[in-house]
Design a protein around this nucleic acid. Structure first.
Length: 391
DNA sequence: TCTGGGGTCCTAGGACCC
DNA sequence: TCTGGGGTCCTAGGACCC
């Protein structure tokens, strides 16, 4: 028996908690209106105006100019999230966090302590509310897919149990558009196939779905329509990639400026790998142009990337090879994938340097971590506020 | 109103090996 | 004169999720 637990409009609720004067008003957490960015989370009052997550912030402003627009305060939300997860841990040792505001709880064997599932769920809701003042929605079912869909259906401040034997009926109660894993593209393809409900989806053969939508998607939808969990969240999967990207306030054409950003991102990524003692061989650069078209280039080395210096050199090469000359760039991203816990050394045939850069950078990282000094690569320093950088 | 950032997984085609 | 079959690794792009 799984619980899926989801905090209601988490970031917006957190702001409401800290600013009681905003209670009940349309709260929109995300980018600042007038700038490039999207809505991260909005309150139910804001949803009444048609605002929703991932909507461009300027569109949200147009729909709801009277809204309370607030920036994301991730530190604060992380603190609250920890308290909520602490509470989960008082109910079961088997808590699988999916994101900052969402978790699965394996509640098998807890009946003696907390009673049957509906009672346990009520106790959990009360405990979270008492500890943090936040409301959660809980879905209870025999598998994660059903539990997840149940909590979503029950929102906000909801509780929904999918009883054994009612799985198919529950699936049929959902609009096809609410099916987890079937986004905009799949919805359009299903419409083209004349499939308009979960029931109609279930009437399709596996062969038909796989021929129409691909092996994996076909099997996924075939199982999901029957209330079978295709494996929506496997436990304990190690991190496979790390990346960072920046969307610029205005498109940037100057290659030197773009390369400075690459260097900044190289530093950020390598420090994060140093910190977690991870290694990677594959470097990926992502470029989004002013027209939103997006390309990427990647390369897998025969050894793990050792230093900021090396990551930057590889990233810059990929960038210069891939970028259309002078085309304005809206977004630049850098990533590392194939993460692993062990190092792959340089081949002996073409050794690159003697590891000096790596030793230096790890020493700098050590200083930074201990709080004894903050060292930055000069080129990544920002010019002082109010001065232009013409010279 | 233009469309964030950090992830995971899948697909198709090519290179290469046996 | 037409060119197998299976497997692995890699790249680029896409779909999807929170």
């Amino acid at each position: 028996m799984y619980f899926h637990v989801d905090l209601d409009a988490f970031f917006a609720s957190a702001e409401e908690l800290d600013h009681p004067e905003y209670r009940g008003r349309p709260i929109i957490v995300g980018a600042a209106p007038g700038r490039r960015g999207v809505v991260s989370t909005c309150s139910y009052a804001a949803r009444g105006f048609g605002v929703h997550s991932a909507m461009p912030i300027n569109e949200a402003y147009r729909l709801c100019p009277q809204g309370v627009f607030l920036p994301v305060r991730m530190e604060r939300y992380l603190g609250l999230s920890r308290q909520v997860f602490d509470t989960f841990n008082n109910f079961t040792p088997d808590v699988y966090g999916v994101s900052i505001d969402e978790a699965f709880l394996d509640m098998r064997g807890t009946e003696a302590l907390f009673g049957p599932a509906p009672e346990a769920a009520k106790k959990l809701k009360a405990a979270v509310r008492e500890r943090t003042g936040l409301t959660i929605s809980v879905g209870v079912a025999e598998n994660k897919l059903l539990a997840k869909l149940a909590s979503a259906k029950s929102k906000p401040d909801g509780l929904l149990v999918v009883e054994l034997g009612t799985e198919t009926a529950f699936m049929d109660s959902l609009p096809l558009t609410k099916l987890w894993g079937a986004g905009e593209a799949t919805q359009a393809r299903l419409r083209a196939l004349n499939v308009r409900s979960v029931r109609e989806l279930r009437e399709c053969t596996l062969d038909f779905l796989q021929a129409s939508l691909g092996q994996a998607s076909g099997l996924f939808l075939y199982q999901a329509s029957r209330g079978i969990d295709p494996g929506i969240h496997s436990e304990d999967t190690p991190t496979r990639s790390r990346s960072t990207e920046r969307t610029f306030e205005y498109d940037v054409s100057n290659a030197e400026s773009l390369c400075s950003v690459l260097l900044e991102m190289s530093e950020e990524l390598m420090f994060s790998l140093f910190k977690e003692e991870l290694y990677a061989r594959t470097v990926c650069v992502k470029i989004r142009y002013g027209d939103f078209s997006t390309v990427s280039a990647r390369v897998t080395l025969d050894h793990t990337v050792a230093s900021i210096k090396e990551l930057y050199a590889v990233g810059e090469r990929l960038f210069r090879e891939k970028r259309l000359a002078e085309a304005p760039v809206r977004l630049l991203g850098l990533g590392l994938s194939g993460l692993r816990a062990d190092k792959v050394e340089q081949g002996e045939l073409f050794p690159q340097g003697d590891g000096r850069a790596e030793r230096l950078e790890r020493a700098v990282f050590g200083l930074k971590k201990s709080g004894r000094a903050e060292l930055k690569i000069a080129r990544t320093l920002k010019p002082p506020q109010g001065e232009n950088d013409d010279d």
